[in-house]
Simulated assay, not measured.
Amino acid sequence: MSSKSDVPGVAIITGAASGMGRATALAFAVAGVSGLALLDLNEAGLTETKDLVHKDHPSLKIELYTVDVTSESSIISAYTRAKEAFSRIDYAVHCAGIVTWQGASADCTLDAFDKQNNVNYRGLWLCAREALRIMRTQPLDHEAYPDANIAPHRGQKGSIINISSGLAIASQSGIPAYCGAKAGVCAITRSDALDYATQRIRVNAVLPGVVDTYMTNSSPEVRQFMMENPVKKATPMRRLGIPEEIADVCVFLSGNKASFVTGASWSVDGGFCAGFSYE
């Protein structure tokens, strides 16, 4: 690995089989990590992500873990195995998430509510908990990677990025459980940032807007709704984001160049959360 790497070390990424998780894996590879631990329930998608990374980075060590983020034991097993495989975890990006159109609260079933929260909020917290448990036991990265020339004041034991949503700030009708879960992600991000700042672990959230992934293209009807409403009416840039635009921010926030950033919620949304634009 080159000493010029922006992100020396190992990244673990959930939701890595597609979309923003896959784009984040590719972005970390370009930025110079020495290893990737990729997690998802979709085993075939994980293999495809690995093949895409190896196309341009054939020697990069990659481990795949089929994980159900609603299962505590599944998560603990994957993070433990990743720690054993790489000896340390420097960056964790938690991208795994779902959205279902369950309707307004009076029409939302308990099963639909629980499904949203078990993946988007509880599942993410379980992943973040395991990352924190690993990172707090590690030496600082400027000690672990002396050739990377990391200034001691920028050194960290680890960095966590939790993927929330612009809908944590500006809610959308018809998906209250999703909006609530994503707001919860921002809250636990701030709490973890406070609790682990003195242990030199940074915790931040990234809030994507409407991004061109399966979630916005699961059917022609969903795509049409997205384009005509949150994109054309509520996104000042009047376009979808692309997964790479989210991934690049995740990599920057993970690395030592963002060493004084913790507890933040970064909007990457084409202006969605900034307000209305009538142009």
Rank of each mutant, 00 (worst) to 15 (best):
L38A: 00
G155I: 11
H142C: 14
V93D: 06
S265K: 07
K83F: 14
D56V: 15
R223T: 11
N162A: 13
P152C: 08
L167C: 07
A151Y: 05
N117P: 10
A264R: 07
L26C: 09
S73K: 04
G9F: 02
A187S: 08
P176L: 03
W125P: 09
Y121K: 04
E43M: 03
G97F: 13
N229I: 01
G32E: 08
D269T: 09
D212C: 00
C108K: 00
C186P: 07
E72S: 10
G35L: 07
G35H: 05
D195N: 14
A274I: 02
V33S: 06
A25D: 10
T137C: 07
S159N: 07
A27P: 10
I134T: 07
I62R: 03
N149R: 11
W125H: 10
A23H: 11
S267F: 15
C179H: 00
Q199V: 14
T47R: 01
C250S: 10
A44T: 13
E43L: 05
L64H: 06
L52F: 05
S34M: 09
M237V: 06
Y121A: 07
A31M: 05
A258C: 12
I201N: 03
G271D: 12
K83D: 09
I175W: 05
V93L: 06
P220G: 06
I242C: 04
L167V: 08
D107R: 04
P220W: 15
S165T: 03
L60S: 02
F225N: 00
T66W: 09
V30K: 09
I246V: 07
A274V: 04
P208M: 01
I242W: 11
I175E: 00
T47G: 04
N204K: 04
L124T: 06
M227C: 02
Y65K: 02
A16P: 09
C250T: 08
L167F: 11
T213G: 01
A131H: 03
M20D: 12
L41Y: 05
L126V: 10
V251M: 06
T109A: 02
A247P: 14
G158D: 08
W266I: 07
E245R: 03
S3A: 13
D141I: 13
W101E: 02
T213W: 09
E130V: 14
L64W: 09
I160F: 08
E130S: 15
E221P: 12
G32F: 04
D195E: 12
I75V: 12
K4A: 04
R202F: 15
L126R: 03
V119W: 01
S77A: 06
R133G: 13
A82I: 13
I75R: 01
S218L: 01
N118P: 14
A37D: 11
G174Y: 11
I134F: 15
T109H: 00
E84R: 06
E43G: 03
